[in-house]
Amino acid sequence: MANGQIETDITMPSRFGRILAVITVAIAAYGLVVTVADSGLEGLLVSSWPFVFVSYLAFAVFWQPSVTVSDGGVTLRNVLRTIHLPWPSIQRIDTKFALTLFTDYGHFAAWAAPAPTRYSVGQTDKSDLTRLPESTYFAGTIRPGDNPASDSGQAALVVRMRWEALRDAGHLDSARLEKERPDIQWHLVTIAALVVLGAAAVFSAVH
């Protein structure tokens, strides 16, 4: 947000997830270096596959997922599929376990926006909980997952601000859904890569 204006598209990856991805890849790279030092380059082709698989798995699970808020709705890029939910379909935004959108199509959770742990909740700065969107509060309280310092709270804050702005402007009044089902795109390349690399890693481990 800049100068009080809401950006057209805002994409939010998991901040903690990306840290985990970097750490995992670094550990895998170290393991690969140690393996090469022990067995030499001639064994690299066989012994490298478990490290390649772990690195790609970290990329798919921790780095790639995100939540995108746009004029057309909310897009949840999860590990195996991307789901686009138009604004008129969204009925409620929850953060009990992760950012979860309850819609006319059902409810969908965002892999990139998990709720915080008990430890991080204990470290909450009360100033972070002021001036949150009206739909955040339930009976005068908020969930720990609504803390804007967390991945779920940050994503929920942006979604609620845009959703409330559209609602208050009347754009969601009597709005009709154009499709009976949400747009879902399966990540076929990711799925195929995980299967192939996983099989290669298992083959390498037993030989």
Rank of each mutant, 00 (worst) to 15 (best):
T35M: 15
A193C: 09
P133A: 06
Q5R: 14
D125A: 10
V33M: 12
S120R: 08
V36Y: 09
S89K: 03
W87F: 04
G43M: 13
A26G: 12
V121W: 01
R18I: 02
R131H: 15
V36G: 10
A26I: 08
L32E: 07
S39G: 11
R81P: 00
I6A: 14
G4D: 09
I93K: 08
L188S: 12
N3V: 01
T141H: 10
H84Q: 12
W111R: 13
E134D: 12
Q154F: 03
I27D: 05
T190D: 05
T35K: 04
F51N: 08
H84L: 08
I142Y: 01
I23T: 13
F16D: 05
Y137E: 05
T141L: 10
A139R: 12
L194N: 04
R167N: 11
A139H: 08
V34E: 11
L101T: 09
S89G: 04
V159Q: 07
D125N: 13
A112Q: 10
S135P: 06
D9S: 12
V36K: 05
M1E: 09
Y105T: 03
L45R: 10
N78T: 02
S89W: 01
F59T: 06
R167E: 14
G40N: 07
L129Y: 03
V67T: 14
E180A: 15
H207W: 07
F51I: 04
V34I: 07
A110Y: 01
W63L: 14
R160P: 07
L20K: 10
V158K: 14
M161I: 13
L194S: 07
G198I: 02
S150R: 00
D146F: 13
S39M: 13
A200D: 07
L76M: 06
F203C: 06
F51A: 08
T136S: 12
L129F: 03
D173R: 14
G4F: 04
L177V: 02
G40F: 06
S135L: 10
V22F: 12
H84Y: 03
L132G: 02
I19Q: 03
D9E: 12
A205T: 12
N3T: 06
V202P: 02
W63T: 08
A139F: 07
